[in-house]
Design a binder for these strands. Structure first.
Lengths: 145, 145
DNA sequence: GTGATTGTGGGAGAAAGTGGGAATAAGTGG
DNA sequence: CCACTTATTCCCACTTTCTCCCACAATCAC
């Protein structure tokens, strides 16, 4: 499971060192795609392929389905982890998520996210906001037992 | 699977270098045809034959089906990849998709698309639109786990 | 302290993308 | 049927980019 958060650097070739704790999960490679909040999502092979299969089964004559295809696949890329435990983030994705040299890597369970520091800070501020936290999650029905 | 996006150039003979990542999928050649959004679609042999079989099974007494037939087959062409990894895009298709020297190659899973930069930018703007996104993904109840 | 691991940087060879010449094939008009 | 023009195919050459590999500093474990 992907946990915690890390501050890492992209080198000038666009490579990102994966936190060592994550590497076992990405041994067979990974998929990266654009997230929903100006960030990037890195998923295991299984998670991505299950997801993509649903989109691929939709008709290509349906305009909305075509949009969905483009959204998912044109922003997606297959990744391999190199010997030093790094992945190469394609240029168009760095651009899409506003990534400079500093990035924040955030574990969120089944996948992890890559953020620019400023976007992450905004997000972190929302998490800190006690008011938001207290009633925002009331709609969910969660019991730990 | 066709993923990602690339900015390539057509030379003055109308040839397009296929992204290296795509070449294995097109080893046995490919089919190209006009898309539904002022773009071109390049499909593997298998994907095209499945698609065309579906269209050929449609009744020729249905006017819409006849239109689809004409679109698919009259604008379709069989392609081979040359030694340098390029395909030759027929003139009438370059015209149909408004292709000049710069083109954008977009992977969409089972096939890939060829766009003029301006048409793609319009499309990308729609994809970037958050409302569209949530609208599209609302179709799914997505959980990666 | 010492050895292994982690994060970072960079160089060299290989591959990718691009362009063009020359031979071949195909279409056109007499 | 033949000459002519146009388009297509097959090479080869060049530049840029990428990928693989190694090196090094900092950190962690014991």
């Amino acid at each position: 499971m992907f946990l915690g958060q890390y501050q890492h650097n992209l080198d000038n070739k666009g490579r990102l060192t994966i936190p060592a704790r994550y590497r076992d999960l990405l041994a067979e490679g990974a998929y990266i795609t654009q997230g929903f909040d100006r960030n990037l999502m890195v998923m295991t092979v299984d998670a991505f392929e299950a997801f993509s299969q649903r989109v691929r089964s939709m008709s290509i004559t349906d305009p909305k389905a075509r949009l969905l295809r483009r959204l998912l696949f044109s922003k997606g890329e297959r990744l391999e982890v190199d010997k030093s435990g790094r992945i190469l983030i394609p240029q168009f994705l760095r651009q899409a998520a506003n990534l400079d040299s500093e990035v924040v890597v955030v574990g969120v369970g089944d996948y992890f996210e890559i953020w620019s520091p400023q976007n992450w800070n905004e997000q972190a501020a929302r998490l800190q906001d006690a008011e938001t936290n207290s009633d925002l999650f009331a709609v969910f029905d969660i019991s730990p037992g």
